[in-house]
Amino acid sequence: MEMISEQRIPASLDEVWTALNNTEILKQAMPGCESFDAVEENKFEAKITAKVGPVKAKFKFNVEMTDIDAPNGYTIMGEGQGGVAGFAKGSAKVDLTEDGTDTILAYNVQANVGGKLAQLGARLIDGAAKKMADEFFGNFNELLSDNDSA
């Protein structure tokens, strides 16, 4: 599946770009994220508990940032193993544009799941992926907005 959306963030393009590269902010923004650690340059390991309705699965994600075009955007890609639940992979292409004092963060997300999640949850995959992406970028926006007021 593929989805496109955007957030208006009350922060400068540079601030947003810095935050997009801050593992602590990324961790806080990601719903269910327990850890988000750098393993090498632009490569990270994240532990995430994904919860969709009655389903709750722990994933170990390998995350990579590619197509880096500082400070205008990048693509963040992740592949996660969720044990018996299966696996998930996704990418978000992020583009930043300045708009006055704000920054428009546009994101184009692609997500796929495999294993039991795909076998049993086909009808929910798109919705769940959209929800997680919107929550992530929504939280990210809030975190930056809070920073501003602080």
């Binding site: 796929n112 076998q119 086909a122 009808r123």
Partner: peptide, 14 residues
């Protein structure tokens, strides 16, 4: 099957 070869009709729910 989806394009990755995942069977997305693997139960009587689908």
């Amino acid at each position: 099957y989806d394009s990755d070869g995942q069977l997305i009709t693997a139960s009587y729910m689908d």
